[in-house]
Amino acid sequence: MTVLTRVIARLLLPSTLITAIAVLVKGYGDVGDGFSAAVIAAFGVLLQYVAFGHRAAARALPLRAMPAVSFAGLLLALLVTFGPVLRGQAPLAHSPAPGADVIYLGTLELHTALVFDLGVFLLVFGFAVGAIDLIAGATDRERGQGPL
């Protein structure tokens, strides 16, 4: 990989992540949702793989935590889904309820559906990066480079 690729890859990581977050929080008003945001963010990380190789990328980024991120996302989504059941509502009954007032944070509406989407985001992001990390690690071992 040329120096140019590396520089661009490094520069693209923050901007990809910001794009992903934008897609996530704007999901309710515009194109995109937690899933797309997660995949976009995953691309940012994967670009580091392509540019720097698996080992260097794994050293620079907290890749070990990816399965944990994934399961944190699952827990978050489960919480939003079955939390209302404990309060005697239907599963996934979001609050504020339809028609009720929403708290605004700038133009961002605070809504539990957003938390659910955040769960989806974490899960898919953890899955995409974690799966590719596992595959890359296995590839390294296959080629006899041994584990990190």
Binding site: G27, Y28, G29, D30, V31, G32, D33, G34, F35, S70, F71, G73, L74, A77, L78, T81, P91, L92, H94, P96, P98, G99, V102, E109, H111, A113, L114, F116, D117, G119, V120, L123, V124, F127
Partner: peptide, 28 residues
């Protein structure tokens, strides 16, 4: 009414949210 402007996202996270829940469980 679901405080959303994007139908697809509202469907995924609200109207058919249980389906999404099942699907992401499969991913996990």
């Amino acid at each position: 009414a679901a405080h959303a402007k994007d139908v697809v996202t509202a469907i995924l996270a609200d109207f058919r949210g249980l389906d999404t829940m099942g699907e992401i469980t499969v991913i996990a």
